[in-house]
Amino acid sequence: MLAEVLIQLVVVVGILLPISLALFVGRERLVRTRSEWRTRLKTAAPTIAVLLVVLLINRFARQRAPRLSREIGFHLTASFYNIEGEFILLFQSIATPETTAYFSSIYVYGYVFLIVFPVLAYFTLPDTRMFRRLLTAYALNYVIGLVLYIFVIAYGPRNVMPHEVAETMLFENKPQVQYLTREVNSNTNVFPSLHTSLSATVATFAAITRSTFPKWFPVAVALAASVAISTMFLGIHWGIDVVAGMLLAALCVVLSDRLVGRWSVSELLGDRLEQFEDRIPWQE
């Protein structure tokens, strides 16, 4: 079952990526990347390494975290439910088979596409700063999210009002997706919504780089908004989780600006490589 779901995901995203690269990035940048990718990779290597380490820690920690969480976490399901009550059921008013299909696909495929595409897009820029900022922001999202997951034990709306969200609930309509979600998460990890925070991070970067990728900006914003809504529409997250996700995204984007290029290792290495690049005659 897991393999089936994964293959579908890879196929869908695999089709979307090349189309988007052609549409939003353009031939010229891709051609140039072909000749510069080695040096760009070298410049960004420390950041890539940091992200990979974070993802690895995240992978293991999410298996172990529930137990640690059991010991030191705070149970906040009741608080969230008391504060916002049935707010997310508002989205049920736009529920039709079509919107349900749309948001389900957005939650699974749209989201993965949304966070993978910018990695490729920013890599096509000669200046790797934006690329490194994006990866740094991703890493921060995961680290801060993981810490919050340990401290906050909360179940999402689908676990509190299963009947009310049944019609649109992702797992009711696509039960097989649960094989994928259980690999990456536990059902008490709802605060904050990492779907929202990572999507909002991407949308913010799209806004910053809108002069470079003008066509990507509106697409990213629309997709990110859809992802945020989908988490509530599908009964997975509370409104509070989504708000927290947006705040987390803002924090990560700001921090990425402060952090990237701050440490001399990468900066020095980057500078030298740039100087080195300048001397290479076959470059532009």
Binding site: N159, V160, P162, H163, N187
Partner: peptide, 14 residues
């Protein structure tokens, strides 16, 4: 318990 563990229990609770 949450709906994941027992869908009926939470509905009775609500």
């Amino acid at each position: 318990v949450p709906a994941d563990a027992d869908r009926q229990a939470i509905r009775i609770a609500r």
